[in-house]
Computed example of a mutant assay.
Amino acid sequence: MNSLKIQITQNENKNEKTPSEQLVFGTKFTDHMFIADYTEGQGWHDHRIVPYQPITLDPSASILHYGQTVFEGMKAYLSEDGSIRLFRPEENMRRMNNSCDRLSMPHIDEDLALEALKQLIELDKEWIPSEQGTSLYIRPFMIATEAHLGVSASKTYSFIIIMSPVGSYYKEGIHPVKILVENEYVRAVAGGTGTAKTAGNYASSLKAQEVADREGYSQVLWLDGIERKYIEEVGSMNVFFKIDGEVVTPALNGSILDGITRKSIIALLKHWGVPVTERKVSMEEIREAYLNGKLDEAFGTGTAAVISPIGELRWKGELFYVNNGETGELSKKLYNALTGIQKGTVEDPFGWIVEIK
């Protein structure tokens, strides 16, 4: 993207808004979307904001056959003073370019992409819900559009931003979930696409999630793809364990997503003086900690839920009940601090918030 000039076409047929208490994640969308096109040799062009609408693609478009696509997930919040707040949006744009690298896709101009997002939010700001726990979910994504069946990187792309008002992830406050440790399927391996936010990573996780659903578990805990020994992620979230007073999380190893909520949690813990370590964490270590009464807390972290406490783990037929199946004090503190910073009710000592007046 190499221009700030954005053509805006207003939507004359505004969509009906859903009451906040009826919002379901990712099913209702705002009136407008941003689009920019890329052509090899020309770069990014035709930056525009248009009414939310279907995308037209040639049946041979590369995205439909070879999965060349990346995306991001972020949120805009409405503070009590009426300002609109974005949480570390520059990190999302930076990570999107890292994903583009892995998928042989062109970079976006991170600053101009953020400017385009601000203009889109300004146009659709009435869609941002104000109730506690609500926000405007933002999905920037890029797809390969060249009409060509040869196995090669596309020569044309579209970068698109859509937005969806969402309610609180938890209707009655955060509560622990049951997790099934996956021993058969693999999410990603070092050298693969695990560090990129690309569609294939999520498609390959669906089968294991089906199994977990049938057995009454909310998510899958993924182990490494080589030894099936070390913990990687939980569902589509990063994961943390508090063991004997120390917080540990799997170190980034080439197959684990560099989560923005993850790095924010680590920064908060260090700011509070809580011991936190990034390293390999095996399921056997978690089992021993549980049996020795030292597994204090466990939780997943991500954009949608922020903090998702783990109350039960099942591994090879054994059940591990974390903190008696209750939300731990550290999980609550982290959730309240991070959501408070996002909404403007808690001081932001890190400069994470970008305000849109």
Rank of each mutant, 00 (worst) to 15 (best):
S255L: 10
A267Y: 09
R314M: 10
I260E: 03
D213K: 12
S152M: 15
V211F: 06
G311D: 09
A61N: 01
S264P: 10
N253Q: 03
G302T: 05
I266P: 08
P165V: 09
K171C: 09
K207Q: 09
N238K: 07
G26A: 06
E355N: 14
H271K: 13
E126Y: 14
E182Y: 11
S218V: 01
P89W: 04
R262D: 01
V151A: 11
Y290W: 15
R102S: 04
L223V: 08
D224C: 01
G340C: 11
K280D: 12
F159R: 07
P140Y: 03
L86I: 10
V346D: 00
L313I: 05
K178Q: 12
G225K: 09
I179G: 08
M283R: 05
A298F: 06
N253W: 09
S218D: 11
R314S: 01
L78Q: 12
T18L: 03
I35D: 01
P309E: 00
G133P: 11
S255W: 14
T134Y: 00
I162R: 02
L64W: 10
I307G: 00
E131Q: 13
V354R: 07
D81Q: 11
D124F: 07
R95S: 05
A116E: 02
K75T: 05
G300M: 02
W127D: 08
E355T: 15
M237G: 07
N253H: 12
A188P: 09
N13T: 13
S20V: 15
V177Y: 06
S104M: 11
L338P: 04
T56C: 08
L112W: 14
Y66H: 12
N13L: 10
D58M: 04
L57Y: 05
F34S: 00
F141E: 02
G317E: 04
G216M: 06
P250E: 02
P19W: 06
Y230T: 13
N292K: 15
G328D: 10
K5R: 14
E297Q: 11
H32I: 06
H175C: 02
S79I: 09
G311Y: 00
K207F: 14
G325A: 01
H107R: 07
T18W: 06
D213S: 05
V281L: 00
I6F: 14
T193A: 05
E227F: 14
L180N: 04
L112D: 07
P250W: 08
E12R: 13
S152A: 14
L123R: 07
V220N: 12
G351P: 02
N13M: 11
K5H: 15
I286T: 13
T345A: 01
E312M: 13
P165Q: 04
